[in-house]
Every structure is written in structure tokens, then in C-alpha cells.
Design a binder for these strands. Sequence first.
DNA 1: TATTGTTATACTCTATAACTATA
DNA 2: TATAGTTATAGAGTATAACAATA
Lengths: 155, 155
Amino acid sequence: MVVTSLPSPDRGIPLPVLLSQAGELARELLQRQLASSRLRPRHAHVLLFLEHTGAAGQQDLLERLNVDASVLVGLLNDLEGDGMVKRRRDPADRRRHIVTISEQGRAAVAEVHSSIDRISDALFGSLSDADRGHLHRILVALTSGIPVTPSACER
Amino acid sequence: MVVTSLPSPDRGIPLPVLLSQAGELARELLQRQLASSRLRPRHAHVLLFLEHTGAAGQQDLLERLNVDASVLVGLLNDLEGDGMVKRRRDPADRRRHIVTISEQGRAAVAEVHSSIDRISDALFGSLSDADRGHLHRILVALTSGIPVTPSACER
DNA sequence: TATTGTTATACTCTATAACTATA
DNA sequence: TATAGTTATAGAGTATAACAATA
């Protein structure tokens, strides 16, 4: 008997695919948990980033959050309309907007942390503290590599 | 001086948010790497799942891949149109479709593995083998919990 | 001429509801 | 009556391109 194609060894679901699927899972839970507020996951990301940077230019934000400039404009319009962030011109370079988080924004981000604590249990409840630590350390390493340069994966 | 609101302790970016962002990163790289073929990430997910199950009902697929039934129909139409999967009625329950992967589908999924190997290096190149192992084990644990029950995160 | 931010628009992805056929 | 699959359609999310202001 001639075997025309070798049976492919089952390598299982590859790591990047698992990561993508787990990320969707986390995003979905977060979205559902935030639904009661008027925040979507991206809004939460902006607030969380501003919480520990205090202020940032829009370029910084879109690079770190990996969103398009036009998308960020919409997010900031929403957040500014609700008084959670403020935009002001950078005196040193009047093209730039410096985005800051307001007191109201800090209050909202505290709620976000509470929401996230709840889904953390649902997501990571089965993980040991050590595993949570591992995961956190690894993900920080991965996401600190953002933004993705298009050339990063071209052969 | 009266402090009207306590300075919120910076807890950093929470784990579910990091996971969501890392997942988007992986998804984006995968999408870019698959762009040369006619496959999108979801198509690849279907093929990868069928590769190691051989055959599955559409209900199994949509639960495992966490996609809507109508979305799955479109994906399978694409894949079947390209001869990568086949649908046949389940004789035991003629409502069900049993989906199988074809030889051509197995060839395509081999290409997918190659594509993924390339982005794996870009994504996880900075990680030790031990960390990759940790991550794999943890993500398998997380994604095996799919599907998400809506009640899972409701207080 | 390049960069920051904005707007308008088109495209993709996904979810919802109604439908067919089988059980 | 309930379930598997399909279709059509609307909504959300995102990217693209043209623009204004500033460097």
C-alpha cells in the first residue's frame, strides 16, 4: 500500500491559538461584567492605563492599547463626555493632546477593578496562586512587547 | 488639607485585561500570517480542532470554539467550498451534521502549523522553555472550561 | 514635508430572529 | 414541543482615507 500523505502527527492546539481563545474568553467575561456600566472593555483599558500613568499623549495610548487612532478618538470622546478623562493641549507641542484621568475617572476605575475581581475568580479560580503568578509574569512580558511591528512576523 | 478621596493604590493592569490584550496580540499576528492563504483565524481554529478529533457535530464545534451557530455555518461553507471539510448527515439523528476534515484540509492545517510556528517565535521568543510549558499548561486549563456559562460571572 | 488628532465612510465580525427539517 | 442547522439582517467593532492644525 502506498501512503500518499503521511498521517500528520497531532500537535494539539498550538500555544498562540490557545492564547487567542483564552483572551477572547477573558474579553467576553469582562464585557458582560461591565455591561451594567456604560463602559466597554476598551474604555476600561484606557482608564486602567491612565490610572497608573496619570497622563499620556494619544499616541502613547494608541500604541500601548494597540488601537487605531480613529478608534481612540471615539473612546476618549465617550470618556470625556462622561467626565472621566480630560484632554488638554501640550504647550510644548500644540499638536499633541495630553490626556489625564479625573477624580470621577478614578472612581470609575475602582469599580472596574471590582468587576474584574469577580471575573478573575471565574477565570482563574481553578489556578493555584503560583500559577496565577506565573501567568501574570508571562503576560506582562508578552504585552510589554506591544506594539507589534508588522515585520515581527514576516519570515 | 482635606483629602476628599483616598489615592487609589495602583494595582497594575489586572490579569484578565492582560490576558485579553495578549490574546488580541496573538490573534492579530495569526491573522496577518494567514493572510496569504484564504483562511482567517476562525477557519484555522476549526481545522485545528477537527485535526485532532477527526469528526464532530456542529454543536460540538460551536461550543468548543465559542462561536455562534450562524457564524459556524459561514465558516463551514467556506471550508467545504474549498474542499477542506465535508458535512454529512448523522444517520442516527438526521438533524445533525457530522463534520469531517479532508485530506486537503489536513494539508492546509499543516500549513497553518507552519504559519503558527513562525508567530510563536515572534510571540514567545523571549520566554524560556519552562515558561512556555507553564503557559501551555495554564491555557489548556483555562480553555477547557469553555463554553462560558452566563452565570459564571454573575455575582 | 511630517506629525497629531479628527471626521466620514466602508468593511468585517458577530449576534438576533425567523425559518426548515427532524426528533 | 424541543433541537440541529440555515438564512437574512441589523448592530458593533475596526480600519481606511481625507482633512485641519501644528511642527
